[in-house]
Design a binder for these strands. Structure first.
Lengths: 194, 194
DNA sequence: AGTCGAGTATACCGATCTGTATAGTGGACT
DNA sequence: AGTCCACTATACAGATCGGTATACTCGACT
């Protein structure tokens, strides 16, 4: 559980590789994975395609690194919010929704990158697949552990409801149906814990 | 509000056009919009590209018809469930989640087609954009009208919570994180209405 | 008989796709 | 001095992209 992704990073992050991955992450998220070619990534990063393929080997692997890297950052971001919330499990649940609200406002105007990537990946054998499902499973496990400390008799159902509110908030935020979806989810979570 | 989509259908649905749209719908949903080319759509439908472009004019328009058509079918599917539920607003809310569960199990193994399409469309000026946001806004309006009949003093918050549960259930179902997400959402909705 | 709409078949356009090849630069470490 | 590594530059391969063109068949309606 220390490593964020099921498939750990295999790529040596040389300076050019880092620039390429940052450019790819921005382009993939903003325009979609299939809509972005490797030539564009190379041009935006100020890197040649030769270097791209020397470091990553394939576009598929760039996609995997993109998602695994974003997953890693999210878990670190969330860990900081959980640490600041203290030991009370109710406060920690609310801290998750606070973290999601801040993350969505800053970095996810188009919704969850994992969900969006999943929409473009049809093959279940794609190496990015375990990264996507791994993060969601990890989030459900987190809610389950917190729910067990709050209401052991209904921990499973409570965790699933929190998960639905959490995913719903990310989608609603991405589509812009109503403002501050994370705050609505947090408020409903607070009511559930009372 | 009688017409499902903001942009009504302009395409005359000749037999070949119908076959092409059905093939496009299946391919777009399974593999993603950008991953499917017009040559493949034509081949799968047993239609020539000439016919495709005579009927639809552009791939972009095929995408719009795909989403508008699916939206139309969903609203008809939902209307049948609402009619069967009778006049009680609480029963009607639960009927929405029942319809979503049945729809997801049959036709949406990969989650909401609107959300998935939105992930691939970056340009807000894309003609498919109002179709996507239109459906979600319509769903929120539906929940709001039902919530006003149930708890007028907290209708807005209740409707938003139902919307979060609904969208969360579709995402959770699509990612397969836990089984029968629609049933979990329905159960939580039932608790909220008590 | 003549016309028209719908559809088929096939070839083509320029652009872009992922991925590879060859050749060379510059710095760090031994 | 020699070796390695990260990187740049450029050209290319083979396939596929969205979209267009020409020429044809067939059935329904007038």
């Amino acid at each position: 559980m220390g490593t964020p992704a099921e498939t750990p990073h295999r790529i040596v992050m040389t300076p050019a590789a880092r620039r390429a991955l940052d450019a790819a992450a921005r382009l993939f998220y903003e325009r979609g994975i299939h809509a972005v070619g490797v030539d564009l990534i190379a041009a935006e990063a100020g890197v040649t395609k030769k270097t791209l393929y020397d470091r990553f080997g394939s576009k598929e692997q760039i996609v995997v690194e993109y998602l695994a890297d974003r997953d890693e950052r999210w878990r670190e971001f969330l860990a900081r919010h959980l640490d600041a919330a203290g030991p009370d499990p109710r406060a920690r649940v609310l801290a998750v929704f606070d973290a999601t609200g801040a993350w969505a406002a800053d970095l996810s105007p188009k919704g969850c990158s994992m969900v969006n990537a999943h929409a473009e990946i049809s093959d279940p054998a794609h190496p990015a697949h375990p990264v996507i499902t791994g993060q969601k499973r990890w989030m459900l496990d987190l809610f389950t552990r917190l729910a067990e400390d709050i209401a052991p008799d209904r921990a499973g159902a409570l965790a699933r409801t929190l998960m639905l509110l959490h995913e719903g908030a990310l989608v609603a935020h991405g589509l812009g149906i109503f403002p501050d979806a994370a705050a609505s989810a947090r408020e409903q979570a607070r009511a559930l814990l009372a």
